[in-house]
Design a protein around this nucleic acid. Structure first.
Lengths: 260, 260
DNA sequence: GCGGCACTTCCGCCTGACGGAAACCGTGCT
DNA sequence: AGCACGGTTTCCGTCAGGCGGAAGTGCCGC
């Protein structure tokens, strides 16, 4: 009976729903029933039944070509996720202003575990091509924004990241734990980081922490990403970035105080 | 069989997951286990088990005070919802420009059934207080943006809305089906609507359809919402709104062509 | 027509979900 | 301290609902 499912053991009913939903990741936003069955390891008939049920609820929708994708209803529910919603509501106007002042890519991200998740982004037509999009994940050590979050993360997280080998995304990526540790110290001192071509050869980022209230815990990172060829502009972005970040922090503090 | 499952039949396993997720609506973004059990009608122990499982997966998260809310993982998956994602990706830069030109509330919405769902919004610090937020639903007949979508919806939807009694949200809301029908005609002719205090006494909206390609099906509505007291400005917003809407339409057409 | 593919439906076996009940907290009141 | 209470967690016997193999359907393309 179901002998060899060592690590793939997801036999609970709720688990099946989650398994199926999880297949709809960045690379597979739209897939056929058989793909779903394949990727989850479920029997076709089982996948079919669950998918039908999810569809009946609006959690999945079917495209004209017969493939499935995440439905509007699920998006609605999920868009109420407080981690992102409060943050977005509060941050957007500030990001707005920042964009208007700089016309560069403005990004907002939170930490989950040892990864960075992008929550919101403002970009004009003619901005740099970015690897990142809303909802995508990156290892926390690889980007300026990630390092900001890492610098303020619980110690066990920091150690975990520093102990693991650091991947070199570009020729400039810091891979020496010592150097990274020093950089984290500096972030804590200066509340800011200028990150030069760490994730991609063509981009430079400036990033700062967003807190809950002026001195509260760090809940997100705000960053500006510019083309590496105009790296000289980075210096001028520090001031507006810090202003925006502390504006968001203050507003977050105000809201959570009254809410709680 | 399965004869009389009128409304109370929610006995499937996947159903329980969905029932629970559905409780996390606009008004209940954060709730305790007992609330969930109550609102779903599930036994406490059952709710507990399922919630635990969802939490194990990151679909739900627990706040410091012990209450539950939607988790980041679910948000990530759902943020891949094509209906909203493609739209947002394409539309944001244009909404951006539009905001910069007008400094008013810029909103983007899609239709689902006979309802309007807000997908994205750009708003400055000092903008009008709005009833709407990203992810919220409204009856499609009540707003300018909704009527734009209604005007281009399948006929059965149109009839369904026109046949049902129209709620008067304000003293100015159109409630006569004849008048509404005329307005829909006009929207189709002019590709634009100025909607005067239909949903709230304090706001006026200008809205236009967003298509897939220049002549494709209408997939969303783009709108600008301003304070009713500055209604005179509405006229000047028509041009930029139409420009932005057709910009988005063109870009959408381009992308879906290459993707498909 | 025929084989192949992707999806849908059927149905009997059996497992994993169900929920009542009881234990386990933390908190506030006396 | 003792107690009562609301919310949460664990346990476990019963049994209904999920499971998936297999057969049926519909749709190409050869």
């Amino acid at each position: 009976m179901s002998a060899t499912q060592a690590s793939t053991d997801r036999s609970t009913a709720a688990g099946k729903v989650l398994q199926i939903l999880s297949t709809f990741d960045r690379e597979h936003q739209s897939q056929t029933l058989s793909e779903i069955a394949q990727r989850t390891g479920l029997a076709l008939s089982t996948a079919h039944r669950v998918v039908q049920e999810l569809a009946g609820w609006g959690a999945l929708e079917r495209a004209d070509d017969g493939s499935w994708h995440v439905g509007l209803r699920l998006w609605e529910i999920a868009s109420g996720c407080p981690r992102t919603q409060i943050l977005r509501d509060v941050a957007l106007p500030f990001m707005q202003d920042l964009y208007e002042a700089t016309h560069e890519n403005i990004q907002l991200a939170v930490r989950e575990g040892t990864e960075l998740v992008f929550v919101e982004r403002i970009a004009g037509h003619r901005s740099v091509e970015l690897l990142t999009m809303v909802g995508s994940r990156f290892p926390i050590g690889a980007t300026g924004m990630g390092r900001v979050l890492l610098a303020h993360a619980p110690l066990d997280i920091q150690e975990a990241v520093l102990d693991a080998p650091l991947r070199a995304w570009t020729a400039h990526t810091l891979t020496d734990p010592k150097a990274l540790r020093a950089q984290l110290d500096r972030i804590r001192r200066e509340q800011l980081i200028v990150s030069d071509r760490q994730l991609s050869e063509s981009t430079v980022a400036v990033a700062a922490p967003v807190r809950i209230g002026r001195t509260g815990p760090v809940s997100a990172a705000l960053g500006i990403v510019i083309a590496a060829r105009s790296a000289s502009r980075a210096r001028g972005l520090r001031e507006p970035l810090l202003r925006a970040a502390s504006g968001i922090s203050d507003e977050l503090g105000r809201r959570t105080r009254t809410t709680a």
